[in-house]
Amino acid sequence: MHNPLLQLEGVTKRFGGVTAVENITLNVFIRELRCVIGPNGAGKSTLFRLITGMYPPTGGEIFYNGYNITSLSTFERARHGISMKFQTPMVYYDRTVGQNVLISLQRHYDLEKAGKMAVNFMKNFGLAGMAGRLAGEVAHGYRQWLEICMAVATNPELLLLDEPTAGMSAEETARTAELIHRLNDLGMTILVIDHDMEFVRLLNCDLTVLHLGKFFAQGKLSEIQAHAGVRDIYLGKR
């Protein structure tokens, strides 16, 4: 647990006059599971988009496995093992669930092999029996799992999950938490953004709190809950 997989050094992102992320320095270690929380507009999703290269940073540098990846494009970072589930499910709506998974798997395997693997993948992600249905027509929760499944199917080292449980029932949320633990046990480094404190409790991991684009606090859930400042920003005292 001592080598950082991902290092952000003083990363800043400005949109015109608005500073979405300001001078964030963050280390994520190999095999770590970490949750990023913060109120709306804290810059969490922007942070993910900076890590995946969808936005170029205004300042600062990003290291991955010790290499500077700041200038790499999104697909190159994906090829180095960074994978992401978007906040609103980004799947191929006009394609079947099966083809969605296949498109992700065939990056590394030939079609025959990928097809066989896809069956297992779908079983593990609660999508058994859905291969022939259009991704645009399945329920929201399944679509979330489909996207996680696709993100995992590229065999990433670092998995970024942006609100994986949004719109899920309590039971589905619990299953998702279990799934994330299983992936983490398999050796995947995972960063999760979520609002749902119940889910965060289930994940039982270190938390990083962002507020107004800045690093605010870090620690175990119990420490964060005891942190007076965090309570203030959530309840709107400041």
């Binding site: 978007f86 709506y93 394609r95």
Partner: peptide
């Protein structure tokens, strides 16, 4: 083929495809 799958993927959602590691 694999390429065909990738092409419809890019046509359907370029950002998703890029995030899966496709050079769109």
């Amino acid at each position: 083929s694999r390429y065909g799958n990738a092409l419809v993927a890019v046509g359907s959602n370029p950002l998703r495809s890029e995030m899966l590691g496709y050079d769109i």
